[in-house]
Amino acid sequence: MTAPPPQLPGFGSALQIRGVVDAVAAQLREAIFAGTLPPGAAVTEALVASEFGIARPSAKAAIEKVTAEGLLQRTANRSARVLTIDTEDVHDIYQARRRLESAALRDLASTLHAPERARIANEHIRALRAEHPSEIIDHDLEFHLAIIDALDSARMSASYRRILSEVRLCMAQVQGRQLLHPDLIGDEHSRILAALQLGDAESACEHLTTHLGRAESLLVESLTHEE
């Protein structure tokens, strides 16, 4: 008879707590993206504990997890609040995106590598209509994340995911307005992939700059109108 594996003290309960924290963090994230928790809304430990029926330490851990992702911000001795993105934030976010993605495109072009995952994400975009902004956003960000993930750098992918959380939040806060049409997004993505397949890094980066620049301008315009 095989002896049971040794048990680490408290290991099972620690995993259970982590599962609760991850689940609550996911719910908070979705509430922020959906606008249920609007920009500037306070997210307190007491509120989260009460809403989800969990202990205060678990609520605190979930809040800290979402704060680390950049969706909540906390100042000294104050409750966490949903991040409010302004036009300066948009410019900074898109500058970071251009630099990271351009570096990725240059590396991929050197091996003529156009990620299949990015191509599939773009096919999903082309199949959508402009009436589905949230789905367009999801597939658009998946396209760009696929470019970064193709580098097989865990740290670069992790850094870029945090930036995309802020991009997703920004788009969610203004998605009531029409941004880029899916056909236009699909065409611009296709040009980037075609340039990668040809090993033309400069063209790929130029198409990326045009694509992100147009999106940045529309986001800034939308935010300006809402101020």
Results as ranks from 00 to 15, higher is better:
4 P>Y: 09
4 P>D: 15
5 P>C: 08
7 Q>K: 11
8 L>D: 13
9 P>S: 10
12 G>H: 13
14 A>K: 14
15 L>S: 09
19 G>N: 05
25 A>M: 04
27 Q>N: 13
31 A>K: 08
31 A>E: 09
31 A>P: 00
32 I>A: 04
33 F>K: 12
34 A>Q: 13
35 G>K: 09
40 G>E: 02
42 A>Q: 14
44 T>Q: 02
45 E>M: 14
47 L>Q: 12
48 V>W: 04
49 A>M: 03
50 S>I: 01
53 G>Y: 07
55 A>L: 11
59 A>F: 02
60 K>I: 10
61 A>D: 11
61 A>R: 15
62 A>Y: 08
63 I>H: 02
64 E>V: 09
66 V>F: 12
66 V>L: 15
66 V>W: 10
68 A>I: 07
68 A>K: 14
70 G>K: 05
70 G>W: 01
70 G>V: 05
72 L>Y: 06
72 L>P: 01
74 R>T: 02
74 R>K: 07
75 T>G: 06
75 T>K: 12
76 A>K: 15
79 S>M: 00
80 A>T: 11
80 A>S: 15
83 L>F: 02
85 I>M: 06
85 I>K: 03
86 D>C: 04
90 V>F: 03
90 V>G: 02
91 H>S: 10
92 D>Q: 11
92 D>W: 00
93 I>T: 02
96 A>I: 03
98 R>G: 03
109 A>C: 10
110 S>W: 02
116 E>I: 09
119 R>V: 13
121 A>L: 03
123 E>Q: 12
124 H>K: 12
129 R>L: 08
130 A>Y: 10
133 P>Y: 13
135 E>K: 05
139 H>A: 14
140 D>S: 12
140 D>L: 10
141 L>E: 08
141 L>P: 03
141 L>W: 00
142 E>A: 15
143 F>G: 02
143 F>W: 04
146 A>L: 07
146 A>N: 11
148 I>H: 05
152 D>G: 01
153 S>V: 00
157 S>K: 12
158 A>H: 11
159 S>A: 15
160 Y>G: 07
160 Y>V: 09
160 Y>I: 07
161 R>C: 06
161 R>G: 06
163 I>E: 09
164 L>A: 15
164 L>H: 11
165 S>L: 09
165 S>M: 14
165 S>I: 02
168 R>Q: 15
170 C>L: 03
172 A>M: 01
172 A>Q: 03
173 Q>M: 07
174 V>R: 00
177 R>D: 14
177 R>C: 08
178 Q>W: 12
180 L>H: 00
180 L>K: 00
185 I>S: 01
190 S>C: 00
191 R>L: 13
192 I>K: 07
193 L>N: 10
193 L>H: 14
193 L>A: 11
193 L>V: 07
194 A>F: 08
195 A>N: 02
197 Q>L: 10
198 L>S: 14
199 G>E: 06
204 A>H: 12
207 H>T: 05
210 T>Y: 11
211 H>T: 00
213 G>C: 09
213 G>T: 08
213 G>A: 12
214 R>S: 15
216 E>T: 09
217 S>M: 13
219 L>I: 12
220 V>S: 05
223 L>G: 08
